[in-house]
């Protein structure tokens, strides 16, 4: 693998996204702060802002680093550098997954801290929050894979829309599963088999999305 050039491509993408990423992180922190306010309205506002900032951050990253590269016709410039299509794919995957996961992890940890330390929020919410927050990562990985494979704004927007609708429906469904839903009002955290199965399935789907992107990229005959 051509690591020096992969780093150059990642550095370029970091340069163009760094301010926006800091902004999304700060927005995420504000939402976590709202979660900790002992007020139902503030809690819901915080949850909505947290989820929205993660979804929008993911879409922003994918749009600027992958779709815009094709749309703004900077891809020929990038590919004129000494990189192969596979180097390009590795670089795009790493910068997107890396940037998203770092901020997601910081916000997830902050969220768990709030859940565990604010009296009015039941500790049992941790399991639901784990599955829900991990689902945002999975949705991000699927959209990223589609964007890398198709380089199409249209297809990516379609998948983004479907995934956003699915996220709400999925969470609604989660709350109806007693092994998960019953914990949302409990002080006990129960990492039962249902919760662990959901988490494992999400990780498998996420890895499958990454592998699918690499598989289709390796089969591409034309890169420009």
């Amino acid at each position: 693998m051509n690591w020096p050039m992969i780093k150059h491509v990642m550095a370029k993408d970091w340069y163009f996204n760094r301010l926006a990423l800091v902004g999304y992180f700060l927005l995420g922190l504000i939402s976590v702060a709202l979660l900790s306010v002992k007020n139902t309205g503030a809690f819901y506002a915080g949850a909505v802002i947290l989820i929205s900032s993660l979804i929008v951050m993911g879409w922003h990253l994918i749009f600027v680093t992958v779709i815009k590269e094709r749309k703004s016709q900077t891809l020929p410039f990038l590919m004129s550098l000494p990189i192969s299509p596979m180097d390009y794919t590795v670089a795009k995957m790493l910068i997107n997954v890396g940037a998203f996961l770092v901020i997601w992890l910081l916000l997830a940890v902050s969220t768990f801290w709030v859940i565990l330390n604010v009296d009015t929020i039941p500790n049992g919410l941790v399991t639901f929050a784990s599955i829900a927050l991990l689902e945002l990562v999975i949705a991000f990985l699927i959209i990223l894979a589609i964007a890398i494979i198709t380089e199409s704004e249209t297809y990516s927007v379609i998948v983004l829309t479907i995934s956003n609708i699915s996220v709400s429906l999925f969470w609604f469904w989660l709350t109806s599963i007693s092994a998960i839903g019953s914990q949302m009002s409990s002080q006990e955290i129960d990492w039962n088999s249902t919760v662990l199965t959901f988490l494992a399935a999400e990780i498998v789907i996420g890895l499958a999305a990454i592998c699918t992107a690499f598989y289709f990229q390796s089969k591409k005959q034309d890169f420009l």
């Binding site: 370029k12 163009f16 703004s72 016709q73 900077t74 020929p76 410039f77 004129s80």
Partner: peptide
């Protein structure tokens, strides 16, 4: 390499 459809950032 330079092409007609190549753009800078």
């Amino acid at each position: 390499f330079a092409s007609e459809d190549m753009r800078l950032y």
